[in-house]
Write a protein that binds this DNA or RNA. Structure first.
Length: 282
DNA sequence: GCCCAGGATCACC
DNA sequence: GGTGATCCTGGG
């Protein structure tokens, strides 16, 4: 399926900002990965973005929501004159916030604690290979993300062998909660504060990870994950420093109801700039 | 080869 | 309710 003339949709901007760990670059403008137990290739073309395989029904049932296509990103911040946000949008105009599967997002971001992108990807990949249902597409083998029950039954030693380290009991504990009836979809129906509190009842889920789950899988666009990068940006750009609650209020006042999306432009831009600075120094 | 990462938790104050 | 030490590991 071809999504024609999408100004705010570029696979590079979507899959390389740290919100998703199972899609990787195959070559310039082409990303492949697995979501919802299916393979998907996303190709940037002159006439738009091509999704494959993606029949009309799969698009309506899965990918429209996955890529957050009911939101018009072009209109989101057109009235915001914040210079940092403007340059962030200019840097990655094709960025979108995905609506990923809640359990996958939960586990992925528990792994993200005190960890970096390349390693998170590697760990998620190993967990999928070990505990996810295998399937093949066009002759190539893939794995779905594991079901909660599968991870809940994993033993800590096996997970540690995969390299997850001290996060092993968190993964098992959180998976067990979900398997035993903790309803992530119900969390999506709560108001922001209640939803965040509820997620933080899960082992390995603190304020930042909870916000990531809310933003990247449950459509809470006000969730404003405050990691070290965001705190650095707030300090350097706005001379602002505060606790979680104060940061949330600052973000609401500055960026409005979709502050979380603004956060991702800022975060992505800051991190890529730092990356470039490092390579220039060497 | 060393360092460190997009944090959470626990022990203390 | 705020602060500081500690925690696995492999990619850069």
């Amino acid at each position: 399926m071809l999504l024609q003339a999408q100004r705010c949709f570029a696979p590079q901007d979507i899959f390389e900002n740290g919100q998703a760990f199972r899609f990787g670059k195959v070559r310039d403008g082409v990303y492949e990965g697995v979501a919802h137990g299916r393979f998907l290739r996303v190709t940037q073309r002159p006439d738009g973005v091509f999704l494959y395989p993606c029949e009309a029904r799969a698009f309506e049932e899965i990918w429209r929501h996955f890529f957050d296509l009911d939101i018009c990103y072009e209109a989101l911040f057109e009235d915001c004159d914040d210079a940092a946000l403007r340059s962030g949008i200019a840097y990655a105009p094709g960025l979108r916030i995905l609506n990923q599967q809640p359990f996958e997002t939960l586990i992925s971001f528990i792994l993200s604690a005190n960890n970096h992108d390349a390693r998170i990807r590697s760990l998620v990949d190993k967990i999928c290979s070990a505990y996810g249902a295998p399937f093949s597409f066009e002759g190539n083998p893939y794995h779905a993300f594991p079901e909660p029950q599968a991870l809940a039954q994993a033993c800590e030693a096996d997970l540690r062998t995969l390299g997850v380290g001290y996060r092993a009991p968190y993964l098992i504990g959180a998976s067990r909660s979900i398997a035993e009836g903790f309803d992530l979809d119900a969390v999506a129906q709560m108001d922001y504060a209640a939803a965040k509190r509820r997620l933080m009842e899960l082992p390995g889920v603190g304020a930042k990870v909870a916000d990531c789950i809310l933003l990247f899988s449950l459509s809470f666009r006000e969730a404003f994950p405050a990691d070290v990068w965001v705190r650095r940006i707030l300090q350097d750009t706005y001379d602002f420093c505060g606790n979680d609650k104060q940061i949330f209020e600052f973000a609401q006042a500055k960026f409005g109801a979709c502050a979380g999306i603004a956060q991702q432009y800022l975060f992505h831009h800051a991190r890529e700039s730092a990356k470039q600075a490092r390579t220039l120094n060497v």
